[in-house]
């Protein structure tokens, strides 16, 4: 198994108190004619609403490492993890295995589960009743920042 460039996760909570809103239509008119768009104004788009479905169950997790590069999860990315989602076969999840946290695609089989990396440099991990194993939360979104 590749040991270099070990993926590392870090946890944060979303703060929904500040809203970055992007108005979709309309503008203020100080004087003169009212905007013809006024009657058609929609509420602004809110990324928190779009990406954080259940705020109380949502945690931010930082990725470090490249074991999930094939799924578009790269070093430095921010994962939006929802603990309220029921794990399903093929979900990408933050898992706890034998004392360590990791992010992997989870394949559920009879009596065991496979944690699948998406980088050929890493090997799948088989977990069964003999392992200390926990699906901590389901990854719903990945946020990338281009510098």
């Amino acid at each position: 198994m590749a040991q270099k460039n070990n993926p590392t996760l870090t946890f944060h909570a979303p703060d929904l108190s500040s809203r970055q809103e992007i108005p979709v239509a309309g503008g203020e008119v100080k004087a003169g004619f009212p905007s013809p768009a006024d009657d058609f104004l929609d509420s602004p788009l809110d990324l928190n609403r779009e990406l954080v479905h259940n705020p109380a169950a949502t945690f931010f997790v930082r990725v470090s490492g490249d074991s999930m590069a094939g799924d578009g999860i790269d070093d430095g990315d921010l994962l939006i993890v929802d603990r309220s989602v029921t794990p399903y076969d093929g979900c990408i999840a933050v898992c706890y295995v034998d004392g360590e946290f990791t992010v992997k695609r989870v394949r559920l089989e009879k009596g065991c589960a496979w944690l699948m990396p998406s980088n050929p440099r890493y090997r799948p991990i088989r977990v069964d009743a003999g392992n200390e194993f926990l699906i901590w939360g389901i990854v719903r979104h990945v946020i990338k920042t281009f510098k």
Partner: peptide
């Protein structure tokens, strides 16, 4: 943001 839980996957 700075107080990161550092976790080592396998």
């Amino acid at each position: 943001w700075k107080e990161l839980l550092v976790v080592k996957p396998r």
